[in-house]
Design a binder for these strands. Structure first.
Lengths: 215, 215
DNA sequence: CTATGTGAACAGCTTCACAGCG
DNA sequence: CGCTGTGAAGCTGTTCACATAG
């Protein structure tokens, strides 16, 4: 099974399965059926089975899937059965909030460096508990190499985003979560996941604006 | 043309078209071809035309689309040819960052109320320029009705998210952007757009963890 | 009897290719 | 010509239905 053969909707759902499975594990449930898992996520049981079947057979007919084993398996598939060092660029309101966000660490992502070009921000503490301070952007390549960083979070204003993305790529970053509301142009081999906050509201606005007289 | 007949991938892309069109407008370009618009977004020209054709014919053969007119049209379709009042629940790091985010206002979404249940936070100023202060959650129904709020942003910790979502629905909210890493259970007629920050990193982790020995 | 894994049928979205208009 | 709008073809992902395992 090659990675490219896995439908990307399946990969997206894998993250959701993992999230729900962790809830099942906490609640002490040992096994889970495709029907149960699909149920909480609003998916069909067949969907869940097809998704998991892409990676081998590890359910027990008549019983379901072993929660703990399935969690381990999905982590392995997603590549989160390890810790990833992550850098973050842009220590504005959003950047600082993300740098302090505990949810990343729980999933195996550690933000180990924060960069910004605003001289007023350099040296400032962004995350009290791990003593993370803001560094000037030009240090990015050296720091990224030293800490083996391949993932980055970009939260600078839109007009700087493309330039900063290029800096990140030059520093060796291979995957970027982009919070700036622009389309980034990156070389092949670099993956971008865009999170445009306003876009989410627009989608909801569309659903609420139903039954227009005529389009 | 009924809303339900529009493929949801099309609706998602509409937001992206709008974003790029605004860039074209700023750069002074009067018309744009489907090829150009698709080009910057990594989509085929046919895709762009098909998407737009769902809502009528407003391109000019041999010329393309009038940028300004197309922007107006897409705003109308998305329902953002007006201003939406939006409430936000949870004034933690992320909540405060979002409350202060200017990108929402630019797209027609105004965060007009912030709620939290932590007594230590009530009354605090969250956004200096518009003097927004944190209110106790129990005021939500009254405020939502007075300001005609139908959209909400949820950024409370995971374990409270479901309860808060229900409070929001009871206050009349019809669309929720959910930043908590849980699946919300909402009644029919209420739309949820989930934004799980860690999930984005997981997707990138998957792409970087290619060519595993065997799955 | 319950629940998985899977080929086959189906649905939905994207690409193709071209008629038609400016 | 250049570029749109659109049926038809092609492809991808989802659902169905059932053989199979515990």
């Amino acid at each position: 099974m090659k990675q490219e053969d896995v439908p990307s909707p399946t990969v997206r759902r894998l993250s959701l399965y993992l999230r729900e499975l962790e809830t099942f594990l906490t609640s002490g449930q040992v096994t889970v059926s495709s029907k149960q898992l699909g149920g909480v996520l609003g998916l069909s049981d067949a969907q869940v089975r097809k998704d998991l079947a892409h990676f081998g057979q590890f359910g027990q007919p008549g019983v379901g899937y072993h929660v703990e084993a399935l969690i381990r398996r999905i982590r392995q598939i997603l590549g989160t059965d390890r810790t990833w060092n992550v850098l973050l660029v842009g220590s504005g309101n959003l950047g600082r909030a993300l740098a302090a966000y505990r949810g990343f660490a729980r999933k195996g992502f550690r933000i180990v460096a924060v960069f910004d070009n605003d001289p007023a921000k350099i040296g400032k503490l962004v995350s009290p508990e791990d003593g993370l301070t803001v560094r000037p952007t030009h240090e990015m390549p050296a720091v990224a190499e030293r800490l083996g960083i391949q993932l980055g979070v970009l939260c600078v204003p839109a007009q700087m985003a493309q330039q900063v993305a290029e800096d990140m790529v030059n520093a060796g970053v291979k995957g970027i979560v982009n919070f700036a509301p622009v389309t980034l142009n990156v070389p092949p081999g670099v993956a971008v996941a865009g999170v445009d906050l306003a876009v989410q509201l627009e989608q909801l606005s569309f659903r609420l604006s139903s039954d227009r007289p005529t389009w």
